[in-house]
Design a binder for these strands. Sequence first.
RNA 1: GGGAGUUUAGCUCAGUUGGUUCAGAGCAGCUGCCUUACAAGCAGCGGGUCGGCGGUUCGAAUCCGUCAACUCCCACCA
Length: 891
Amino acid sequence: MELSTRYAPSETESKWYEHWEKLGYFRSEPDDREPFTIVIPPPNVTGVLHMGHMLNNTIQDILIRKARLDGKNACWVPGTDHASIATEAKVVRWLREEKNLRKGDLTREAFLEYAYQWKEKYGGIILSQLRKLGASCDWDRTAFTMDKGYYEDVIRVFVDLYGKNKLYRGQRMVNWDPAAKTVLSNEEVIYTDEQSRLFHIRYNLEGDSNSGIVIATQRPETIFADVAICVHPNDPRYKDLVGKNVLIPLINRPIPVIADDYVDVEFGTGALKITPAHDPNDYEIGLRYGLPIIDTIDDDGRINDACTYQPIVGMDRFDARKQMETALEESGSLVKIEEYTTSIGRSERTNAVVEPKLSLQWFVKMTDLRGPAVTAVEDRDIRFYPDSMKNMYRSWMDGLRDWCVSRQLWWGHRIPAWYLKEDARGKETFIFVAQNEEEAVAKARIETGNSALTAADLRQDEDVLDTWASSWLWPISVFDGFNKPDGEIKYYYPTNVLVTAPEIIFFWVARMIMAGYEYMGEKPFQHVYFTGIVRDAKRRKMSKSLGNSPDPLDIIAEHGADAVRYGMLSCSAAGNDVLFDMKMVENGRNFANKLWNALRLVKGWEVTETPENESIERNNALAVRWMREKINKTLLSLESDFNSFRLSEAMVGLYGFIWDDFCAWYLEMIKPGYEKPIDRVTYEATLDIFGDLMVMLHPFMPFITEEIWHQLRERAQGEDCMIQPYPKASSVDEALVFQVETAKDVIANVRDLRNQYQIKPKEVLTVAIQDSASARALYAQAGLREMVEKLAITSSLEFVETEQPNSRSFIAGTENYYVELNLTIDVVAERAKLEQELEYERGFVRSVEGKLSNERFVANAKAEIVEAERKKLSDGQARIKILEESLAKLG
RNA sequence: GGGAGUUUAGCUCAGUUGGUUCAGAGCAGCUGCCUUACAAGCAGCGGGUCGGCGGUUCGAAUCCGUCAACUCCCACCA
């Protein structure tokens, strides 16, 4: 078999992915096994794979593959989110650019038809991209938040919450996006500091144009919606004015001066204009004092005719502001303009400046749903990684406000509320909330007492629901939990892990928890792993506009999915940002190549059934045993890393283990001499070990491990790496490990000496090895065959290697550098070395004894930790004993 | 304004209720090697008063106090 010195991932990866999928390894059905469930955070149906998805889905795939290898019934449910506002915006643009159509010219039905067309054509690209990454999702379960069943679930929950009086329609001050003409949640508004100007405007006292009051505002165009001026009750400047009327400039409408301690005396002029329709705080104050509301701004951000100052009616609010500057200047009401930095809220989607606006919307009473969701996280029934995220969660839950779930869009779940057409415009005194039109009519007949009512008499609410009002049901709906509460959901729910980005903890995570308790009476997941944000090496957030975000598919095409997975993970820990660096991907690629070459080495050996040299066989057996013990140790630490979701550590640890211990030491130890065969027993053991390592590494680098697994041996049909049982750790023979590790140290020392004295080919090196135990180990491991017995009995010896040593590279590193070693035991030096080691060990034992004699430690520590400390102590004592015996032997 | 977090090598970070498997890893840097699996490799090297100060302790990177710098979240901003 000729194998290239470079591993070529591209063909291998598609080959194995197809193979796995064909054999149905990704599929899951309920059975006797323990389930391990992950529901994907559904990407927007409009989405294309970006680096954040790569990170997030790599982590999920690692967890799922590990669970599968552990023998669990692993189920990873994929799917997409309809993402109402984001998708609608895309469709609107597509219609304009491709079809020359405007949303305003289309009926709702026609628009939705186009939207579905768009979705069929462009939606869900991301799911096929995930396959390139190796994601082992159960594709048969692919869900979409607007699938028929899912849609019905969302409506059912709306009806249910309404019936339970946990959902209501009400007027509220909301964040309004004038570009998209829809309401936005607080979370969809991005605040940034921007330069603004503070207009100081004089309002004259009614009936006395010589006195008045100066207010400061950023929004002079809203003064025609003013209904009062508010000052602080203790402000001496304005005491006399309270209770009197002042006149709004330009239109001279009188408004009262009132006093409220909301006003900050220090800010601006200490006088605040009250504009309830256009400011949330003003709205509150207006309510408190029973002030009227004048709304002068339309849904699209233009000044409407409620404004009695005609010149600005019909203008956009920003144009109106400019106009007002001139008008006020001319009328002499403008005292001054102050430069001012303030934070301005913009729509996350359209970037339009958000307008506070009063409107009729639907709200979920969050406080009614909060209780169990708070305690679950507080009591760690649901665990967060990193743990500190629960503080953030807690503070948000404490300040919960009702959730506005209506959106003025067409793409989404239409609100299942019907109104009587005959109601006076805008009154809508009768509301019928029902699963469908038929039920709404039935309800309407009962409630109105008019049994002749038909669907034609009703009008359905035009709005749709917030995207999150569907995705909060994701872990339930994807298993059809509403319709079949005794079906699959019983098996898969609660899911095990949710892997998600920290920025949607409130949007999504918290709400899923609430929905879980409300509808399943149980948490939706046990663990929540928060990934970091993917940034570039300079800590800048990856973004299209900066051009610092590589296309993940390009990187996969160039270096392979395994390398990208390695790269993503090797710079990430839960909650830490990922500083993505191509260097790390290259490391992953190099690692794949290293594995590949280890395969080439092993498969290149000729195998003999009749070994010629018994001592080689013995030494190889020792190497195999040592490797097995090291695998045990590695498995133990892997297990603990997985249990605490320290995936990066797990992978990097495995990387070091395979590279150093397996490749650099084990393979070198057993490597037969030039053109010599290896004995069958060692060879077979090595294939087994190599195979085990591939299974261990499989969750992280699924493709190359599968490939090597198959190259190692002929495998039966279906005997694939990804469904093997994960190796189990057993207890570790520390003594054996200690012995060989010591030998490694000695060998490394010999190497040092060679470099230090720059030994040339065929030259003789005389080294003093200061510890006979090490020298014996060196003998055993490095192929210095003949002298071990002598070593034990003499304090001085001379050894000349006559043939090329078996493990050349340990000693000389190259064929030309095989050296003749002249070993001398220096008794004095050895004693000093031993005494030094003894002193160190005694110090160690003292410190552990100190720890164990600390009553507080013993009382509070977990039993296993105390046990581990005791073991350390006895190990230390054992080492002391060995050292003392060696010293005694020296006499 | 309220809350959370971070500060360990040039960079990114580990460091699991205080001790000697603890001062670490990877990357970067430097030196020497095309050698028989791998130059995408091998063998080495240098580099940190664990942010400052104070305290508790037999013992502190680890606990407490304080100061400093940075990051994030929430709220408000006429």
